[in-house]
Design a protein around this nucleic acid. Structure first.
Lengths: 346, 346
DNA sequence: GCGCAAACTGTAAACGTTTACAGAGTGATC
DNA sequence: GATCACTCTGTAAACGTTTACAGTTTGCGC
């Protein structure tokens, strides 16, 4: 009995069109009906501005057409580009996107996975800050498909996309050597993370492969941040004036290093070449613009989204684990091409 | 009849605990039951790892505990800080956040508002790129509470929070004058937007209020972007070497202007003071760091979220419209304090 | 006009929860 | 031990859809 108050439902439409609710549903979903019925239902629906209740639909259909993306920090440009790509893949397919910021607390990450059991979301893309045994435990019981962006133990029965920080770092260091640099310093971020360790491995690998011996004195570990990068660079340059280049674990650190160089009147790249990582807007914000390693955040986001929808559509295929190859964006902080920012008259 | 397959439902629990589904629901929602019943239900629920189906709950309860935030561009730092604040307000209250990127297309904005009728979201925070008559039309019929971040006609029956670009610009220009600057150029963004027009008004107001006459020659309009800022600055400085300072419509433009100054060997701030707008990370990325107007994105996000939840909780109070006062973050690009980035040994 | 197949339609059940209502149990009081 | 008030419990309806099933109409060929 469709009462006057409240938004129109399938019953309201049925009453107005003089048909049953089943017919209303069928017409609205294009399941075939007599032309006359179609016309009456469509007219009634249009007149009343009927919009089907998505919640009821979800309950009946067993899926919500919602996906969740959970990551440590909304502010981080790397995650922002993931969000953008995930949207790009899922929006055209009619999925809504739930954003969950875990603030890098592991228990919160676990809760997101567990909360899949409430059937509120059809699938999850998770960027864990670190993968613990508890993560594996919980992921194994996840009530809905999950794709992890990050490194998982080989045994895991969960789709994942990982970056390759080792190769990324090798790319950077190799590039510096090809530019003729020999005293290559390394400003790393927190070393107790997987990417932190991998960068160190990459750094040492690249040097050794060129027959050089990594000098622990040229390696500094610090928190991320522009100021921190500047401090670290000053420390390195104070102690080892011979340094001719520096690779930094992200663009903030690299920008800080560039600032330090400016302050010491070291020309970039002539006297100090600088390479960053992430290839964020900050790299282009440097002056000269910073060469930077792109670990493929955008692509990881895209692939993760594709994996997830594949899992939702098709279903039962084998576990996938992809690695996204890093790419080096070469700019003036290593090659020193342009000196003028843009084509203005000199 | 709870079958073995599928996740446990209230029926499964009831069967296992030997009670009715009503008791299960009551126990789980803390509505009182005999201690013995409570124990049995809780045990059964725990053993089976029962999680209530959120969709069914939403259908029964008439609300989803989901909020939507719709803005033009996930990549824009201003919106990112809004997202963060909105999360900060709503997450503790148990709301999930749906993110919708409209890519700045008006029709998409309208669709978001219309789609509130599907009952999938309890409320909406909307950042329209521009407010048209169609917006007002659709907002008036919105099926759920909406808060708009942006400027609405006074007649609108919709809660809103707005920035004050006029005052923000006045703040910046006044600051430059207090620093002794007289030839103040202005690099504006697209002028056919509300904030674009307001910045122009603010610029002229501040100058006039100091007895100066705005010189149209010192005003340039361009798209946003670092390169664009550099080009614009070069153009201005080529034509008017006497310029001693420049106010830019956002931090990208300001950073570009700073780059141009570097290339022309103009010292900042001695020979050219630079002020940006938005107070994003880019401002701190400048070297020297850029003075920048904070239009209060974060605060607008917070207030919008608070307005929305107030509307959802309480309900029927009068329409609110708040304006967030801008704030000036003074840094070295106007005051020139520090020359060394950080406390390293010189 | 009749029979038949095909196309359409309506009734009712189902999705998983919450909750109004009535019935059953409990203990206290006289 | 009967009555009463009270608390607790179970049944059933409701939220708004989709869909299996059975029933009805329709069109067609004879």
């Amino acid at each position: 009995m469709p009462t006057s108050d409240g938004p129109p439902t399938v019953e309201t439409i049925a009453a107005r069109a003089g048909v049953s609710i089943a017919s209303v549903s069928r017409v609205l979903n294009g399941h075939g009906a007599r032309p006359n019925t179609v016309r009456r239902v469509e007219q009634a629906a249009a007149e009343l501005g009927y919009v089907p209740n998505g919640v009821a639909r979800s309950l009946k259909g067993g899926r919500t057409r919602q996906l969740t993306f959970a990551m440590p920090d909304v502010g981080n440009p790397a995650y922002v580009s993931m969000v953008r790509q995930i949207q790009a893949v899922t929006k055209p397919l009619g999925y809504r996107l739930l954003l969950h910021s875990t603030d890098a607390v592991a228990e919160d990450e676990l809760d997101v996975v567990r909360s899949l059991a409430d059937r509120t979301s059809d699938g999850l893309i998770l960027c864990p800050i670190r993968v613990t045994d508890a993560h594996m435990e919980v992921l194994a019981r996840a009530a809905r498909p999950v794709v992890v962006i990050g490194s998982l133990p080989g045994t895991a029965a969960v789709d994942s996309v990982r970056a390759d920080s080792v190769s990324g770092t090798v790319l950077a260091v190799r590039h510096l050597m090809e530019c003729g640099r020999r005293r290559i310093a390394f400003i790393n971020g927190p070393a107790d993370t997987v990417p932190g360790r991998n960068r160190l491995i990459g750094y040492e690998t690249a040097l050794r492969e060129a027959g050089a011996v990594p000098d622990p004195e040229l390696i500094v570990t610090t928190d991320f941040g522009i100021e921190a990068g500047a401090r670290a660079a000053h420390r390195l340059l104070d102690a080892h004036p011979g340094i001719d280049s520096v690779f930094c674990a992200n663009d903030q650190l690299a920008l800080g290093a560039a600032h330090a160089a400016h302050d010491r009147d070291l020309r970039i790249p002539e006297e100090l070449a600088v390479v960053g990582m992430d290839d964020s807007e900050l790299a282009r914000a440097g002056h000269p613009a910073l060469t930077s390693v792109d670990l493929g955040s955008a692509e990881r986001g895209r692939i993760a989204a594709e994996m997830l929808v594949a899992r939702l559509d098709g279903g039962r295929h084998e576990v996938r684990c992809e690695t996204v190859a890093p790419r080096l964006s070469v700019r003036e902080s290593t090659t020193g091409a342009r000196t003028r920012t843009a084509a203005g008259v000199s």
